[in-house]
Write a protein that binds this DNA or RNA. Structure first.
Lengths: 243, 243
DNA sequence: TATAATACCATGTTTAAACATGTTATAACA
DNA sequence: TGTTATAACATGTTTAAACATGGTATTATA
């Protein structure tokens, strides 16, 4: 299958930016020239440029051009919890090395009926059935994060405790249940609670980071609510936006 | 000045989603019909739809349609530090009310020469001149956040301590120095340090949230580095993404 | 020489249309 | 009846072109 044109152009330009063909603070060739070079329309070039801009590599100014943004020279950074795999592919902080030894301990697994309290928390409907999962995330054997998850039952036909041990998303893919569409998240810092102290390696620390995810399916319904509570000094999240 | 067409369509559809003309989990009319209704091309409709999708209101599936995503019924949420104004427009947590009493105490103001250590921290170049600012953010009189900022001097001609009291961005706008293009951010939770305990109302808490921003100008250069360190249990950040 | 008018340059917006590809419902077939 | 073609449907990709608008440098003007 041939790649999409705008993806090819995006990747080509990205590589050239990273290899300093277009150094920071300089302008990319104008759209007209790029469209000649890649033998596509200006529209298609613009689409590739937009992707670069969304990723934070360049910034376009009307009437002036597309400038390459200076990279942030961060030696401590880190991870993005921004993938549907949850903690897979996560990096430690501040060592900035990939975590290989990621293990999951399923501390709790049960099917429940959504009551008012849980409905309020998860945005699920009262009387829906849902799986409740408590999973401890071990990094190099240390419990550094704990996930409290609710999955709507009707979306996870035949789901079992064994499946919970692995990746829930792998289960969804393997069984072709549906596609994950989008997620909202809320990130904050809160006081540690009883449970946190029990299961996480907090030491003296009396706070945890909290990342709450609301995950949507293909057809617009919420199917996962997960609050990840993590030990400070170990994780970070990256963001980017333009105006 | 007439509004952009795609913005009008975006706003119209957004309003209709919010007023339940198109309830969650249902589909929007197909692009063809929308283009007839608004009397624009399908392209223009698609642009509006893309904006709705980027904002997390809808999700498009090829071959099926554009579904409205269920909203998250969160009663505790909160703020986005995601604006160029820094703390302006921020909401408290968990009360979710607008903070009116936001005051700024300029604890430190000086012009410095960037040495290796600061260069490493800020991504500025060694020997650049920069303003260093330490600003305590008071919410209803309580010191809940502290900003440690470096601004490249050459970008802030004539900047003074008095200007620091107000919004730096207001200063930039008023003096038409440049436009803010983009920002990267790193969010984490870390142990509180000496200075945090001195100036923030931490009580027993021994951690703080840390939000580090790298802000870029129009022409692609980094001009601001700010680390905001904030008291737990007071703030939250919203995120959204789709796949 | 400073300022204003102007021309040019580069990105932004919109139209129009063709074709590609994934999804779903219908009809044909075994 | 269950499976398989097939058609209809809806979004995705790409081309082509015109015009709008902000930015910059040049030129004319006072």
């Amino acid at each position: 299958m041939p790649k999409k044109l705008y993806t090819e152009i995006y990747e080509a330009l990205k590589k050239e930016i990273e290899t300093n063909v277009y150094p920071p603070k300089t302008s990319l060739p104008r759209e007209e020239d790029l469209s000649k070079r890649f033998d596509v329309t200006r529209n298609t070039v613009r689409r590739a440029l937009k992707q670069l801009q969304e990723e934070g590599l360049v910034y376009a100014v009307k009437g002036r051009g597309v400038v390459v943004l200076e990279p942030v020279r961060s030696n401590q950074v880190v991870f993005s919890a921004n993938n549907s795999e949850g903690f897979q592919g996560l990096r430690s902080f501040p060592q900035n090395k990939f975590i290989q030894e990621l293990d999951t301990d399923v501390l709790n697994f049960k099917e429940i009926i959504v009551d008012e309290k849980i409905a309020n928390l998860t945005s699920f409907n009262i009387n829906d059935k849902a799986f409740y999962l408590e999973r401890l995330r071990l990094f190099d054997g240390k419990g550094l994060a704990i996930d409290h998850s609710y999955f709507r039952s009707d979306a996870l036909k035949g789901f079992s405790r064994e499946d919970a041990q692995g990746s829930v998303y792998k289960y969804i893919r393997d069984n072709e249940l549906f596609k994950v569409a989008a997620q909202r998240s809320i990130s904050s810092v809160v006081s540690a609670n009883q449970r946190d102290s029990e299961v996480l390696e907090l030491g003296d620390l009396n706070c945890v980071g909290s990342l709450t995810k609301f995950v949507y399916t293909d057809i617009g319904s919420l199917f996962e609510y997960t609050e990840t509570r993590y030990v400070p000094n170990n994780f970070a999240m990256l963001g980017f936006q333009y105006y």
